[in-house]
């Protein structure tokens, strides 16, 4: 586990050495800020509901951008060989990189805490859904990051990694919005597979173990897939 911590620190600071972190965070803040505040005053409600409503869609292309280089670059440069011949295990590497993603997502969400603070000065804000929303955002970010890591472990090309991860994340997000195409017997299963469905529950402030289990299982499957695909390469 100590090794995972070192890898985590290296990857996390690596984000801020290259311009990628600043670009991704700036894009994220501009997009969410703009979409949220263009309608915020029309609704005339002191709630962050619309902000959290945006997150699944925005996360599905922002998070793949965060994760795309984590394995692809190592495969491309060959630095993976140096990393793996040091006393580390696959698990250390994957956990370290995954934790770096989560930390990055938290760093990215941190500036948006200004929104609820600002809004609470304008009206009475119910903090329950806000806390739930942020918790849900981190869980969903983690699930998407695991998917992104898996996509990144498949290829040495970062662009392909990005596209594959975006495709998977978008499908997960949109699946419960496409339900009217599906036969009735599949509805329950498909709705359960959708990220939006689970995220909505949490962002209403309802923390249900089913939703938490969903995000944990997506993350686990993603990381396990990444583990398998890296092991199979060598």
């Amino acid at each position: 586990m100590k090794q995972a911590v070192h890898i985590f620190k290296k990857e996390f600071s690596g984000y801020f050495i290259s311009p990628i972190a600043y670009i991704v965070i700036a894009i994220f803040l501009v997009v969410t800020g703009w979409f949220f505040f263009t309608t915020f005053f029309l609704y005339n409600q002191a709630s962050l509901r619309n902000f959290f409503g945006l997150l699944p869609l925005i996360f599905s292309f922002v998070i793949p951008a965060v994760t795309m280089r984590l394995f692809s670059e190592e495969l491309n440069v060959g630095s993976y060989e140096l990393l793996l011949t040091m006393p580390v295990t696959f698990t250390d590497v994957i956990i370290g990189k995954f934790m770096a993603c989560i930390a990055f997502i938290i760093a990215m969400l941190l500036p948006t805490v200004a929104y609820p603070i600002l809004i609470s000065t304008m009206g009475t804000l119910d903090w329950g859904p806000v806390v739930g929303g942020y918790l849900g955002a981190i869980l969903m970010g983690g699930a998407f990051a695991a998917v992104g890591l898996f996509a990144s472990s498949l290829t040495r090309n970062q662009i392909i990694a990005f596209i594959v991860a975006t495709a998977i994340c978008f499908s997960l997000t949109l699946i419960d919005k496409m339900l009217f195409f599906l036969p009735k017997s599949l509805l329950g299963v498909m709705a359960y597979l959708g990220t939006g469905y689970h995220f909505q529950n949490i962002s209403k402030g309802v923390i249900d173990s089913r939703d938490i289990i969903y995000f944990f299982s997506v993350a686990f499957i993603g990381l396990y897939g990444a583990n398998l695909s890296m092991q199979k390469k060598y």
């Binding site: 070192h6 690596g14 290259s18 440069v77 630095s79 060989e81 140096l82 011949t85 006393p87």
Partner: peptide, 29 residues
Amino acid sequence: KKLMGYLPESAPLYKDMIVYDYLVYIAKI
């Protein structure tokens, strides 16, 4: 792995790290 030191062909290192940071990272691992 702990007993060995390995220099792969063409030394594939992390490109955007500073030499010092890199060596510190390796020392930690």
